[in-house]
Simulated scan of single mutants.
Amino acid sequence: MNFDLTEEQTLIQDTARQFATEVLAPQAAELDTTANPEILKSHLQQLAELGFMGLNIHSDFGGAEAGSLAFSLAITELARGCASTAVSVSVSNMVAEVIQAIGTEQQKQNYLPKLCSGEYYGGSFCLTETEAGSDPAAMKTRAVKDGDAWVLNGTKVWISTAALAGVYVVWAVTDPEAPKGKGISCFLVPAGTPGLAVGKPEEKMGQKGSGTHEVTFTDCRIPLDALMGEENQGFKIAVTELAGGRIGIASLALGVAGAALDYARDYLLERKQFGRPLADFQGLQWMLAEHATEMEAARLLTLQAAALKEAGKPFAAQASMAKLMATEKGNQACYAALQMLGANGYMKEYPLERYARDIRVTSIYEGTSEIQKLILARHLLA
Rank of each mutant, 00 (worst) to 15 (best):
Cys82Leu: 01
Tyr263Gly: 03
Ala149Lys: 11
Tyr365Thr: 04
Ala317Met: 01
His379Gln: 11
Ala259Lys: 00
Ala297Ile: 12
Arg360Ile: 03
Val215Thr: 13
Arg265Trp: 09
Glu328Val: 11
Ser90Asp: 14
Leu115Gln: 05
Glu270Ala: 14
Lys108Phe: 06
Phe125Val: 04
Lys323Ser: 07
Lys156Ala: 05
Thr218Gly: 03
Glu290Ala: 04
Ile159Glu: 15
Gln207Cys: 15
Ser117Tyr: 09
Ala264Glu: 02
Ala260Gln: 02
Ala138Trp: 02
Ala253Glu: 00
Asp280Ser: 15
Arg357Met: 09
Ser124Cys: 08
Ile371Phe: 08
Gln233Phe: 09
Asp262Asn: 12
Lys114His: 07
Thr362Ile: 00
Gly183Leu: 10
Lys41His: 12
Pro190Met: 10
Phe125Ile: 04
Ala333Leu: 01
Ile359Tyr: 01
Leu196Ile: 04
Leu73Tyr: 10
Met139Cys: 08
Thr10Ile: 04
Asp60Met: 06
Gly118Ile: 01
Gln332Lys: 05
Glu119Ser: 12
Tyr355Glu: 00
Glu353Ala: 06
Leu352Ala: 07
Ala382Asn: 15
Gly147Glu: 12
Phe19Ser: 04
Ala165Leu: 03
Lys272Phe: 12
Val98Asp: 02
Ser251Ile: 02
Val239Thr: 13
Tyr350Pro: 01
Ala322Ile: 06
Ala172Met: 05
Cys82Gln: 03
Phe71Gly: 03
Lys204Gly: 09
Ile371Met: 10
Ala297Ser: 12
Trp286Val: 11
Phe61Tyr: 15
Val361Glu: 03
Val157Ser: 14
Thr128Ile: 09
Ile102Lys: 07
Ile371Thr: 08
Gly234Val: 05
Leu127Val: 13
Arg246Met: 13
Gly258Lys: 01
Glu105Tyr: 06
Ala163Ser: 14
Tyr335Val: 05
Leu47Arg: 03
His58Glu: 12
Thr15Ser: 15
Leu376Gln: 09
Asp14Leu: 06
Leu11Cys: 01
Pro314Glu: 12
Thr15Val: 09
Ile237Lys: 09
Glu129Asn: 13
Gln106Asn: 10
Ser210Ile: 00
Leu50Asn: 10
Ala336Arg: 00
